[in-house]
Simulated assay, not measured.
Amino acid sequence: MDTNKLLLVIIAILLPPVAVFLKAGAGKDLLINIVLCLLFWFPGLLHALWVVTKA
């Protein structure tokens, strides 16, 4: 795991929408993550970790 991915994982744990924005930009993934974080924090966290770690 390189340094950038490690930092994104740490950011995803603390601020999931920020990590998704940094990885995928402003798009459907960011919108999905914001909705998940507004509903419940944990699904937003899981989604952010998935977006950050997928190849």
Rank of each mutant, 00 (worst) to 15 (best):
L14G: 12
L38H: 01
A48F: 08
V52H: 06
L45R: 02
A48Y: 08
L46N: 06
D29P: 14
A19I: 08
L15I: 14
V52W: 04
V20G: 05
I34Y: 04
G27Y: 04
G25D: 04
D29S: 15
A48S: 12
I13M: 13
N33H: 07
F42C: 11
L6D: 07
L45W: 08
L30R: 02
W50E: 09
F40R: 09
C37D: 03
A55R: 13
L22R: 02
A26V: 15
V9M: 14
I32W: 07
P43V: 00
P16Y: 05
L39D: 00
D2A: 09
L45G: 06
F21A: 13
A24V: 10
L14V: 14
A12M: 05
T3A: 15
L7Y: 06
T53Q: 09
L31Y: 08
G44C: 02
K5Q: 11
I34D: 00
G25Y: 08
W50N: 15
V9P: 09
V18C: 10
H47P: 12
G44Y: 00
G44F: 00
L31H: 07
V51L: 01
K23I: 01
L39T: 09
L7M: 11
L8T: 01
L6A: 12
V9I: 15
A48G: 08
A24D: 11
T3E: 11
V52K: 05
L7H: 06
L8W: 03
L8C: 06
P43E: 00
T53Y: 10
K54R: 13
A24M: 09
T3R: 14
V35P: 11
G25R: 05
T53L: 15
F21P: 11
H47G: 10
F40S: 10
K5A: 11
D2M: 11
K23W: 00
F21K: 14
N33M: 04
V18F: 09
V20R: 02
W50C: 14
I34T: 04
V52T: 03
K5R: 15
L14K: 07
A48V: 07
M1A: 12
I10L: 15
V51K: 00
W50S: 15
I13D: 07
V35D: 04
A55L: 13
K54H: 10
K28H: 13
V20H: 02
L49H: 06
N33Q: 04
G27R: 03
N4T: 14
L36F: 04
P16Q: 01
T3F: 08
I11N: 01
F42G: 12
G25K: 04
I13T: 12
V20F: 05
A12Y: 02
V52N: 03
P16I: 01
T53W: 10
C37T: 12
L46S: 06
A19S: 13
L6S: 14
L6H: 11
F40T: 14
A55D: 15
L36M: 08
L36Y: 01
G27D: 06
K54P: 08
A19H: 06
I32N: 05
F42T: 14
L31G: 13
N33F: 07
F42K: 09
V52Q: 03
I32F: 09
P17V: 03
P17W: 00
L6C: 07
N33R: 05
L45I: 02
W50I: 14
P17K: 00
N4H: 13
H47S: 08
P16R: 02
C37S: 13
